[in-house]
Measured scan of single mutants.
Amino acid sequence: MALNTPQITPTKKITVRAIGEELPRGDYQRCPQCDMLFSLPEINSHQSAYCPRCQAKIRDGRDWSLTRLAAMAFTMLLLMPFAWGEPLLHIWLLGIRIDANVMQGIWQMTKQGDAITGSMVFFCVIGAPLILVTSIAYLWFGNRLGMNLRPVLLMLERLKEWVMLDIYLVGIGVASIKVQDYAHIQAGVGLFSFVALVILTTVTLSHLNVEELWERFYPQRPATRRDEKLRVCLGCHFTGYPDQRGRCPRCHIPLRLRRRHSLQKCWAALLASIVLLLPANLLPISIIYLNGGRQEDTILSGIMSLASSNIAVAGIVFIASILVPFTKVIVMFTLLLSIHFKCQQGLRTRILLLRMVTWIGRWSMLDLFVISLTMSLINRDQILAFTMGPAAFYFGAAVILTILAVEWLDSRLLWDAHESGNARFDD
């Protein structure tokens, strides 16, 4: 018995066209964080690309023209004298008006014999932002004059995390709450300039795509075929072959399989920071003279006294001054041990922890910024005066060393310790 099946006739004509040209192939790229070699397709503007294995951002879609970056830099340069030299806060102490600005706080630190601690604050609040705007201006002028731009481009990517104007702005709020127990506070004209400078700096850093600047100024022929001998440069993120001198053909720094002496430098910085954190938390970090009496505060006791007036601000200072430094030390110690013992479990967790400490590390400088600003506000000789204690130097040095330890660690070593050939990683 035959089955009668109805015929289905399409209502619209289906047209099949042959592909007349070869589909576009992607360029081969190595991930600078996990060293995976993959094919990167062509990316349009405002599109980002991520590593298929570790999800690290390979290409950032946010990109401004150099002219727009230069305009932002010149605007920031105009704001800087007002943000640093004009009063941020006014207080009335014992019937006398006192003005506080950024430069005055750094000068008070240096004047009291601790120039190293003052230079830490100076670099993060004044030096690094000033280098940022002058570097962008150098790129703008240098591109037109045919100057060598490689050193500036190499420095810009590392400079971003040292620009800490946003953290200093939080420190202004913390210092205001600490001082309000002794005097009446009012915002100064410099505060508005400083807030504007923070906003412009944040926007500029978020749109400063150094890798795209490398592509514009020093374009290189990408690798179009897969080759395990391809290496990625950690300076400019170019994937290719080393030249005859073993250097990256684009930025001219040595092109090595792994960062040289990464573990040794990381261990040295980490152990030194552990040693410095002990006096930083045991010795007094601030000293207040009130009517001839002397009151010393460690980091913890200062947080407890701050909690009596504002528990939320005390929580912020606790996280930045105690929780973050010790968390960074514990995480980095764990990561280094996992590399030495070739741990194969929990790779995803370790990668996330490394990215976390990379982002939060700079916030530990908050305590030094609060001390710097408070020193310029309260300084009335023996009637009422505020000065920093010996722990300030140890704390600042420990924070900087932990930042350097994270920067010096080559994250690809975590993958080397893991089993080879993993296309995915999980716990």
Rank of each mutant, 00 (worst) to 15 (best):
A2S: 10
T9F: 09
K12G: 13
T15V: 11
E21I: 09
L23K: 11
P24D: 12
R25I: 11
R30M: 15
Q33F: 12
C34G: 00
D35C: 07
M36F: 14
M36E: 15
L37P: 13
L40Q: 10
P41D: 10
P41Y: 11
H46P: 12
Q47F: 15
Y50C: 10
L66D: 15
R68I: 15
T75K: 02
T75G: 07
M76Q: 05
W84F: 13
W84M: 08
E86W: 02
P87M: 06
L93G: 01
L94Y: 03
G95N: 06
R97E: 03
I98V: 11
V102S: 10
G105F: 02
I106F: 10
T110Y: 00
K111W: 01
G113V: 12
T117Y: 01
G118V: 02
F122E: 11
F123R: 00
I131L: 04
T134Y: 04
T134F: 14
W140F: 14
W140Y: 14
G142Q: 01
R150N: 07
R158V: 15
D166N: 15
I167P: 08
Y168H: 08
I172A: 08
V174E: 00
I185F: 07
Q186N: 10
V189K: 15
G190F: 01
S193Q: 02
V203T: 14
L208I: 14
V210S: 12
V210Y: 12
L213F: 04
R216S: 07
F217Y: 07
F217G: 15
Q220V: 09
Q220E: 09
A223N: 09
D227S: 15
E228A: 09
C233S: 02
G240P: 04
P249Q: 07
I253D: 03
I253N: 02
L255T: 01
R258E: 04
R259V: 12
S262C: 06
S262D: 04
L271M: 07
V275G: 04
L278S: 08
N281M: 05
P284Y: 04
I288H: 00
G292Y: 05
E296H: 09
S301G: 07
G302M: 01
G302Q: 00
S305R: 05
L306V: 08
A307C: 07
I311W: 11
V313E: 02
I322T: 07
V324T: 09
L337R: 09
I339P: 06
H340T: 10
K342C: 09
L347G: 15
R350E: 12
L352A: 11
L354Q: 12
M356I: 08
W359E: 11
G361H: 05
M365N: 08
I383G: 01
I383R: 15
M388T: 04
P390G: 06
A398M: 03
I400P: 03
S411D: 08
L413N: 08
W415N: 09
N422A: 15
R424K: 15
R424V: 12
D426E: 08
D426Q: 11
